[in-house]
Write a protein that binds this DNA or RNA. Structure first.
Lengths: 283, 283
DNA sequence: GTTCAAATCGTTCATATCGTCCACTGTAGC
DNA sequence: GCTACAGTGGACGATATGAACGATTTGAAC
């Protein structure tokens, strides 16, 4: 049970670090000092203060707030995203991702790191335990909420170039394409996501309607050869000025068929592609 | 995010700081105090006040809701949600829904009214025009984002009773169950949504894990007779203290099979059921 | 043990908010 | 018209807050 620094508690309470230091110095919060003079606030003291003053807690996740957890003396920030997701607390997961994002980690990095790892391990569960499907479905919904939250915080110019994308027909995975859309929005393009189980004809309509500079395909489930051919055929038929990228476990099936279609393995890569487009525009 | 100061909220509402301070002091707005006596208003409380009093929001961007300004700017009430959704601008759709919500319409009413109508008309498109699939997929993603936004604004107690729910296997519709989860959260329960294409076994695991008071099933696509029987059988086998509700076009297939399983047609109805549970608890 | 980046220190200063008082507006009763 | 009253918006000195600064401490890597 790590003691809190003034910065930690200030962030959790939504006040400035300066104020918090003053409150400690005036005795309203009791804090110990290290040899070198740094203030350390125990979790119990933080809870006492919050209780007694009725201070609003702006970001409980920074305190790992549930009283149960405090009682158990769980360490702060120790939990991995996987732990939080298997725990099933949607707001905790949102908090986890949000605090990393505010801490400077890009959405793309979050997707490639903790999110990918967590969902991968959940996939393992799916194979091993009988409750894997339950946990995975619940985690998908939780991630959707958290990603939507992040995406809503971004502000993309209405003049930014557009990207359209989808998950192919018969592929039910919601999350990967939603992640791609979020990463693309973060990198500065307007992302139009058609979601899972999308036929090529719908992608074509989206293309005609939005005139995107970038088209993404996110293929996780194994894809039937005819479908892969149909998709690859369409992608190759696009004008040369359009960048087509394909990601996901099953993406290789599509991308291999033809050059000119770029295979992508990570969200950071995707963000780089988008940055190239946006940067080029701006220049 | 960060708590609002009287000045912030006053500016957003277009009233004087003096009035706002008076409203707080008279208890019409609940505000916490800092150690030094400064008033802090949480965003949820601000939203509650705006909804209940019908106060007009002069400058929503000060509340971190810039989309609302745009939605109200373009002659509010002229565009239907259907128009906005077919237009494909996600932030416009968010603004549309958010401004109605701030205006006092409940999420349940929004789902039963504009959202249901819009999605229904989009379904018609699906039959008539060849680009219907594209528009419908895009609109689904847009609605997901907007609903997640609303859901993120709600604040549900960690002690609130739990509801679990899902869409049956082979039913790919994402939105209805997500809407149900949002409505349930609005009405005061913690909602755990397993999303589309969920086998009964996963619902059972969720039940064992979360010990919910309420179980919801959202069935839109036609459901195979064996599956319907399997689902109905499970629902009926639940303890009597558990309330089981079934909604959606295909819901009748399941609910008809057995009494004790309540058929639900609107989100307002669902909210009423939840209110019954929460109210009973509180009493 | 040394090195180094990140966190925290104590301080200062501009700004935000406090509580209070007062002048103004609209409305209801007479 | 007049008064009483209730709500509003603006102004005031006093206090609280938040951001910035260079100096010091900390923790982890080598």
């Amino acid at each position: 049970m790590r003691p809190l620094s003034p910065r930690d508690l200030a962030a959790a309470l939504g006040v400035s670090e300066s104020s918090l230091k003053r409150w400690i110095d005036s005795g309203r919060i009791v804090a110990a000092r290290t040899e070198g003079g740094h203030r350390k606030i125990s979790l119990v003291e933080a809870v006492r203060f919050i209780r007694e003053t009725g201070a609003p807690v702006a970001r409980p996740e920074l305190l790992d707030m549930p009283e149960v957890a405090i009682a158990q003396g769980r360490a702060i920030g120790r939990d991995t995203l996987f732990d939080v997701l298997t725990g099933g607390d949607a707001s905790a997961a949102r908090g986890w991702l949000l605090s990393r994002y505010l801490g400077g980690t890009s959405i793309a990095e979050l997707c490639d790191g903790p999110l990918r790892e967590a969902m991968h391990r959940l996939g393992e569960l799916w194979h091993h335990g009988s409750d894997g499907v339950f946990v995975e479905h619940r985690a998908t919904d939780t991630c959707l909420q958290a990603l939507a939250h992040l995406r809503n915080m971004l502000d993309v110019s209405a003049e930014a170039p557009v990207a359209t994308g989808a998950t192919p027909q018969d592929d039910p995975y919601i999350l990967p394409s939603f992640m791609a859309a979020t990463v693309i929005a973060e990198a500065g393009m307007r992302a139009v996501n058609l979601g899972p189980d999308t036929p090529v004809s719908a992608m074509q309509h989206a293309f005609v309607h939005h005139q995107p500079r970038l088209v993404w395909i996110s293929a996780s489930a194994p894809i039937a050869p005819e479908r892969a051919r149909e998709l690859a055929h369409w992608l190759v038929s696009l004008p040369e000025s359009i960048i087509a990228v394909v990601g996901g476990r099953a993406g290789a099936t599509i991308a291999m068929e033809q050059p000119g279609v770029r295979r992508i393995d990570t969200m950071v890569e995707l963000a780089a592609v988008v940055a190239g487009i946006v940067g080029h525009r701006a220049a």
